[in-house]
Amino acid sequence: MSTTEHDHSTTTRLSLNLDGTDRTADVDPRSLLVEALRDDFGVTAPKIGCATGDCGACTSRVDGQITKTCLRLAVSAEGSQIVTTQGLAEDGELDVVQQAFWDEQAFQCGFCLSGMIFAASELLAENPDPSEQDIRWAISGNLCRCTGYEAIVAAVRTAAARQREIPQRG
């Protein structure tokens, strides 16, 4: 990390592996991680719905852990591997959770999708056959104002069923 004077403000160089690509940008050291991802790296899939860790719209996977990126300073992610919903698809093919969210109409405005998709993925990694209650608890760290959650629960159930049917990648 190096610090430089630039345009009356101090910036810090931040290097990440973002959605599979090594990236570097100069960021305001006061920036939240979500702000840096959006404003300095131009990856806008994580959204800012509250900036207080309540809604989950800014969720990304940081070093394997799903993270509300509004609750971390950007500089704390130096050297991290970060995956957003933009980087989930492999070779342009949606992953099983993304596909189920589309098929089950599990979103309306779509603003909550980062949080919902990553929470669902994490649940399915730990529990291939979750109950309705498991699903509701797993996504309850995220807010959705449009769907009433019904279709999201259905999508997670569908993703779980499909995942059980296909052999695991890798």
């Binding site: 919903t85 596909q99 779509g110």
Partner: peptide
């Protein structure tokens, strides 16, 4: 829907 679930929809901000 594929653009939505893969974070490629551009909202105003």
């Amino acid at each position: 829907g594929d653009a939505y679930v893969s974070g490629r929809i551009g909202y105003t901000d």
